Amino acid sequence: MLSNPSLTLPLRKGGKAEENYVGRFAPSPTGPLHFGSLITAVASYCDARAHQGQWLVRIEDTDIPRIYPGSEEHILRSIDAFQFEPDAEIIFQKDRLDIYEYVIEHLHQQGWVYACQCTRKMLGSNHIYAGTCRDLNLPFEQQAIRLKVSDQTICFTDRLQGTHCSNLQYDLGDFVLKRRDGIINYQLAVVVDDYLQGMTHVVRGADLLDNTERQIWLGSLLGYPQLEYMHLPLAMNAQGQKLSKQNLAQALDLKRAPELLQQAIRALHQPEVDLDIPENMLKQAIAQWNTDFIPHTTELHGSYL
Rank of each mutant, 00 (worst) to 15 (best):
Q110H: 08
L168P: 00
S37A: 09
V113Y: 01
D194F: 02
Q109E: 13
D61A: 06
L282K: 13
K255V: 06
V190R: 08
Y224T: 15
K13M: 12
T297E: 09
D181P: 02
R266G: 05
H127W: 05
L107R: 12
L76Y: 10
M1G: 14
L7V: 10
Q197D: 12
S37W: 05
Y304K: 02
N137P: 09
G53I: 04
Q110M: 13
Q270W: 07
T132H: 12
M281V: 01
I64L: 04
L177G: 03
R214W: 01
P233W: 08
L282F: 10
H106P: 08
T119D: 03
C155K: 01
W55T: 01
Q142V: 04
H164Y: 07
L275I: 09
R266Q: 14
T153S: 03
K245I: 08
R180Y: 06
P278E: 08
I145L: 07
I277V: 13
E141H: 14
R146I: 12
L136D: 10
K255Y: 05
K13R: 09
Q226M: 07
H201P: 11
V57Y: 02
D194Q: 14
Q241G: 00
Q262F: 00
P65S: 08
L188G: 06
I294Q: 11
G173E: 05
I39A: 01
E259F: 04
A43R: 02
V191F: 04
T132P: 03
P233D: 04
P10V: 14
S303A: 11
L209M: 13
E228L: 14
T200V: 10
L222R: 07
M236D: 05
T291Y: 11
I39K: 06
D292E: 10
I99Q: 13
D135L: 13
Y186Q: 06
L300W: 03
N137Y: 13
Q250W: 03
T153Y: 00
G124L: 03
L305E: 07
D151V: 06
D80N: 13
G53H: 07
G223Y: 09
D80H: 12
Q226T: 09
G302V: 10
I128W: 02
Y68Q: 11
N126C: 02
E72R: 12
L260C: 03
C46E: 03
R256I: 00
F35G: 00
A251E: 05
Y102Q: 11
H74C: 12
G36L: 04
H164L: 00
D61H: 04
F140S: 11
K245H: 01
A267I: 14
Y170S: 11
P278R: 06
I183T: 15
A48D: 03
E299C: 14
R12E: 12
Q241C: 01
E272I: 01
V191Q: 04
I99T: 15
A115Y: 07
L56K: 15
Y102K: 14
T8N: 08
G124Y: 00
T132I: 15
M122K: 15
Q187P: 01
I64Y: 01
